[in-house]
Amino acid sequence: MSALLSIQNMTHFFGGLKAVSEFSFDVPEGVIYGLIGPNGSGKTTTFNLITGIYNPTQGTILLDGKDITGQKPYKIVRSGIGRTFQNLRIFSSMSVLDNIRAAKQYRAKSGLLSSVMRLPGFMAEEKRIREESMNLLEVLHLADRADDAARNLPYGDLRRLEIARALATQPRLLLLDEPAAGMNPKEVQDLMKLVQRVRDEFKVTVFLIEHHMKVVMGICERVKVLDFGTTIAEGKPEDVGRDAKVLEAYLGRKGAAC
């Protein structure tokens, strides 16, 4: 299997603080890949580096062999990476449908003039975008809320809406930042099924950060454990779960809660 995402020697400093240190790894195409580690171990920073929110102090990030290091976030998104956020960042006063349509903006071809005059080409494109977006909402069980303002959705729906919005950019790699945060056991179950279904139906590679061990152990095919910005273990979830260093760094301190 070839690597879809390849990170080589990535290091990032915040002022004098080393947040990520000489980090290298590959995410193979088609898997569900988990990144775990205690709070402050550099997980979200890794996502921010991949999506171009920060520029790595050092190192290279390749997407399907193409160097995307240091590009602007929107360009990285356009080359095939979608993401969600740890604390939701929904377009909350827009409708659910418009949240999705906004993520399809960059594929729209109609120019300003044709949009303002609502020419036939524009109208056809709008119709297509609308249909595509509704299909996406259908898959994520949000279609009946399409016209509601996003802010009126319950929390679990918002989590799914964010995933839907990330999918709307038609990514090959989907980054999920703690998708199960704040969910009850039933919602966690549904989420796990959803992630697997999304991977199969949309043919995306999923790369997720999670604290919830059940999610990681349940759906991830490969897991990487991070502590203080360096990798301390990598492998199949069941192997990683037995690793002494991991138990000490992560489960040993937090295991009781999981």
Partner: peptide
């Protein structure tokens, strides 16, 4: 008319959450 187009949704998305807008492409 602008608001009800892809361009308009870009404007609105920036108002709602600029970072999320950038990461919606």
């Amino acid at each position: 008319n602008l608001v009800h187009s892809s361009h308009g949704r870009a404007f609105l998305a920036i108002r709602e959450n600029e970072l999320a807008a950038e990461l919606a492409g």
